[in-house]
Amino acid sequence: MAGKKQKVKGTARARSENIWGWLFVLPTMIGLIVLNIYPIINTIKQSFFKTGDFGRGDIFVGVDNYVKVLSNSETWDALLATFKYAIIEVPFSIAISLVLAVLLNRKMRGRSAYRTIFFLPMVCAPAAVAMVWRWLFNSEFGLLNHILGAKIQWVSNPKIAIYAIAVIGVWSIIGYNMVLFISGLQEVPHDYYEAASIDGATGVRQFFSITIPLISPTIFFVCVTRIIGALQVFDLIFMVMDTGNPALQKTQSLVYLFYQSSFVERNMGYGSTIVVFLLVIIMIITVFQMIAQKKWVYYS
């Protein structure tokens, strides 16, 4: 009896483990399917429709929405702004937090206090963070201009607004990256550093020759997730900039544009098309990163 079963599906035990395995991942899977996968499919479907009010009376329009999105200069402005944001946010936040992580990984007084301070921005609600920065950046009454004695329009000059926003982004994400790097650093065996100092390597040399290669998997992980995160920037722009802001057109990100079309102008089909466009871009970039990792990421 048992032998017969084995031929078909392995032992009773393996089969039972199989069932239990599935049962235990089921809650997560249901969550993923209901909250992520189904909406993704629905969004892609919606991008081919001219959507009616309140989800009624959708009309199939083929690739009309895509033609409109891709031929609208607004989309390309938004894509450019999104890239500009990512180009500032990702490298700066990684570089700064990596240095901080190395400094805070040593034995020193008040280490946890410093770690807490740098992690604090992560705990604050993004809306609150944005409101404070909005005041700091205010051209009339802002603290920054008050100190500088200037009248720089940080967030309403189309040339610099996106960089000002990116500074907020860097500030708020440093703590999170830092914690990830610290955990990566703690995996690095101490012997390497000892051997290196005996060989006469300086701290800087150790950092580039030991630390970076050995935590490159962590750097890679942070890099991939941060680029995705940066390309999806929305809340900072939404909170800091008003609709009357002349810099908005050159600063709004793709997700902001999506919000504007989908939820303000209630054109769900057009909005869905924008996020599908963004999805494709993110996927392409991530694929390239996956290919490139073979060149610089060392898995021990």
């Binding site: 909005r134 205010n138 009339e140 009454f141 309403s156 000059n157 008003d242 009357g244 802001n245 002349p246």
Partner: peptide, 19 residues
């Protein structure tokens, strides 16, 4: 005031701050 200024501090805010 320039549009930039008014988009950061609306007219009612400017009125209320004596600008």
């Amino acid at each position: 005031p320039s549009q930039e200024t008014m988009s950061e501090s609306a007219e009612d805010v400017l009125l209320g701050s004596g600008s």
